[in-house]
Design a protein around this nucleic acid. Sequence first.
DNA 1: GCTTGAACCTACAGCGACTGGAGGTTGCAC
DNA 2: GTGCAACCTCCAGTCGCTGTAGGTTCAAGC
Lengths: 158, 158
Amino acid sequence: MNASGRALGLSIGQLAKATGSKVQTIRYYEQLGLMPAPERSQGNQRIYGARHERRLAFIRHGRELGFPLDAIRQLLSLADQPDRPCAEADAIAQEQLAAVRSKIARLRALEDELERMVACCASGTIGDCHVIEVLADLSHQHCLTPDHRGQDSEFGDA
Amino acid sequence: MNASGRALGLSIGQLAKATGSKVQTIRYYEQLGLMPAPERSQGNQRIYGARHERRLAFIRHGRELGFPLDAIRQLLSLADQPDRPCAEADAIAQEQLAAVRSKIARLRALEDELERMVACCASGTIGDCHVIEVLADLSHQHCLTPDHRGQDSEFGDA
DNA sequence: GCTTGAACCTACAGCGACTGGAGGTTGCAC
DNA sequence: GTGCAACCTCCAGTCGCTGTAGGTTCAAGC
């Protein structure tokens, strides 16, 4: 019971290294209930097994893809019920894809505006600096889209 | 002294409406020192003039373009010194443009991964759900880029 | 003059997902 | 037995707001 079993005996530092996480992050996930509380050594230090490593890898993988922790929590609970339909998991992933696309769209608009802004900078003085002029312009006349404020709150993390 | 002068007598709520900000946000900017403390009425309520309106519009405009408040602080201080060279302002804008581009690149990679993820979902059960399978895969074999973790901390806000 | 309700005031907690530090204990190698 | 790295808990800070609690002021209507 070592290859895919549970006993493995990783310290939190070893688990962190194995999954590319930080020690604090692992404790943070435990605090949030995303990671189960592991056994402790006689000296009260956490001891992890393969099960924990898989779970943490799942979480990190989700985070790398930009899923919020709440979505990951749902995905984890779904992953534990192989017989349920996968429509729910699919919906979560679709939602994340939509969020990513909307952030891209917003950032591309910003990119356009910023490009125009810096392209016109002739390295003169602040007095005739296009960057400052655009920002100071109350009427947004220099802007491609007069309302470049995002409709969704902000493009958060991912 | 009304058209472009200072006296105008806006309450904080009127200023918020005029600039598309929220009342709390204006107070927050004042607390950070981005907005100067305005005069007060007899009843201790803030009274703003055209100068404040221009300054707040500048800040909001910068935020809409994703500049962090610290960058906006620098840009504001530059805007007050029209004789200085504009290289510094240009550099700040270039930096922001670079940040936006790097976020776009990261998000596009995520978009690709997520597309592949959901495209293969055949609406079966969790047991053979591609979404869950990819996330649970320790070896990242299903991933386009085995290291889709961002090199910069995260793609923050904008 | 009085009442009502909206808008204002200060101060502080919370969001998301960590990160870093203080101050103390344990584990392992030499 | 001695050092020091890694562990422990708890708490504050990041960024840019947003929301709430509990109280005061303003302007309009009667």
